[in-house]
Design a binder for these strands. Structure first.
Length: 311
DNA sequence: AGGCAGGTGGCCA
DNA sequence: TGGCCACCTGCC
């Protein structure tokens, strides 16, 4: 648990309970397609950090396997299934989307079968998406990594990422968790800017101060139904419609949230004839057209657009 | 080399 | 309400 002393070793690879058999592409799109900014892939192994958890994932013969630093094994074993949405039947959820009457949605689903929505810590999701304004995923990941490295507590040190025979990196690596909001409230805006945040530093600084003055506010928000939770998130500086919906979709599993970003705007403009529509009416169209699981549909449209973008 | 990027907030009519 | 524009700065 502490950052000093001998690095812990990784436990043995174990098969993941549940019935998710994603292709490498679907796994990548789920972990690194803009929902989360703390999963990184090296040599076919995905490493993810959330709250105090560290896990690695890999595909072997089409089956998903995981391991964790030995000292964290039991906590990760219980946290990982929820994080990956293994508690829900995504086949059934996806099947209930209106793909039978929507050929484009059907194509998007077929392109990424089994794509799912992650369930990440609420506060960390808020932090990630406060960084996201007019930035691409690579850059958001850099910001978040710097925030963790400079302002987040060390979770543990773990041994080589790859087996010794792999020869890529045998150095033990330190893993930091993201700073909590009460910790961020003590970081100056200037220090935040040093994490490549630019004008987003102000959003994070002011949001941190807001939250620090209201203990329990964030937890309470997470527990509210979608509409009420969204209204509260919109009170935060730097949180608009799009960020609020992302936080609720990826950090609270509210599948009715329908974030409208430039990709989804383009997708609906071209595929659904909504040229020239503004984000607000597009969001309304999305919620009514795709129904109560609109957020899941959105993720498929988003993935398709990223893959085929520009055509 | 310079424009652009998973938006938001604050101005104007 | 609706449309612009500044806001930072590292990447492609």
């Amino acid at each position: 648990m502490t950052g000093i002393g001998k690095p812990t070793t990784w436990c043995e690879w174990q098969s993941l309970p549940g019935r998710w058999h994603p292709t490498p592409e679907v796994l990548a799109e789920t972990l690194d397609g803009g929902q989360s900014f703390r999963w990184h892939q090296t040599d076919g192994i995905w490493t993810g950090v959330w709250a105090g958890n560290i896990a690695q994932l890999c595909l072997r013969d089409g089956a998903l396997h995981w391991r964790a630093p030995a000292s964290l094994q039991s906590t990760v074993a219980s946290a990982l299934p929820l994080c990956l949405g293994l508690d829900r039947d995504w086949t059934a959820l996806t099947d209930s989307l209106p793909w039978r009457s929507d050929a484009h949605l059907a194509a998007c689903i077929a392109a990424f079968p089994g794509l799912r929505i992650l369930r990440q810590p609420f506060g960390e999701t808020l932090l990630g998406f406060l960084c996201s304004a007019t930035k691409q995923i690579v850059q958001i990941k850099q910001m978040v990594a710097l925030l963790a490295k400079k302002h987040g507590a060390i979770i543990c040190r773990a041994g080589p990422l790859t087996p010794p025979s792999g020869g890529i990196s045998n150095a033990a690596r330190q893993f930091h968790r993201l700073p909590r909001w009460d910790e961020l409230a003590r970081v100056s805006e200037k220090e935040l800017r040093a994490c490549l945040l630019g004008f987003r530093a102000g959003y994070i600084h002011r949001t941190a101060r807001f939250l620090a003055a209201r203990p329990g506010w964030l937890e309470e928000t997470e527990s509210l139904p979608y509409a009420a939770a969204k209204a509260r998130l919109l009170e935060l500086p730097g949180v608009g419609e799009k960020v609020a919906d992302c936080v609720l979709l990826f950090g609270a599993a509210k599948l009715e949230a329908f974030p409208v970003d430039t990709w989804v705007l383009k997708s609906l403009a071209r595929r659904y004839g909504l040229d020239g529509w503004k984000p607000a009416p597009v969001a309304h169209f999305g919620r009514t057209h795709f129904g109560p699981l609109a957020g899941l549909a959105q993720q498929h449209l988003f993935a398709w657009e990223r893959k085929h973008g520009g055509r």
